[in-house]
């Protein structure tokens, strides 16, 4: 299975801390920071490293403060199979 790795960049200065992104995140990886931005809002931060880059947070963000990145690592192809002489150990070599 292809491995999906996502991440987001939050423009914390424009975030108003409405938390709609947190509610929409299926990975529950967003939360309000204890800190305030210059406008006086608690801003949203990513607290878990489990983002899949699904874009849900960005879709519901009223202030367009979230940029979403997603990297799909393709399944590594097998290039060789090595088996020892006795045949009881097989090693599959991937790129």
């Amino acid at each position: 299975m292809a491995k999906v790795k996502g991440d987001i960049i939050i423009d914390i200065e424009k975030c108003k801390g409405c938390e709609l992104c947190a509610a929409a995140c299926p990975q529950h990886s967003l939360e309000l920071s204890r800190k305030l931005n210059s406008k006086g809002y608690h801003y949203i931060v990513k607290i878990e490293d489990n983002c899949t880059g699904c874009t849900n947070c960005a879709l519901v963000c009223p202030d367009s403060v979230i940029r979403v990145f997603r990297k799909t690592e393709k399944k590594k192809e097998q290039v060789a199979t090595i088996t020892n002489v006795t045949g009881d150990i097989t090693v599959k070599v991937k790129s």
């Binding site: 790795k5 996502g6 991440d7 987001i8 960049i9 424009k14 108003k16 801390g17 409405c18 938390e19 709609l20 809002y41 880059g53 874009t55 960005a58 879709l59 519901v60 963000c61 009223p62 202030d63 367009s64 979230i66 940029r67 979403v68 990145f69 997603r70 990297k71």
Partner: peptide, 30 residues
């Protein structure tokens, strides 16, 4: 992961950079 080739969602060009005056969580922004 945050490199341009992986960018899947960004603020559209047709939105200006002006921060919106709407209240937090208001649907107008979306």
């Amino acid at each position: 992961v945050c490199i341009n080739e992986n960018l899947v969602y960004d603020k559209p060009e047709t939105l200006t950079k002006t921060p919106m005056h709407y209240c937090p969580g208001c649907g107008h922004g979306v």
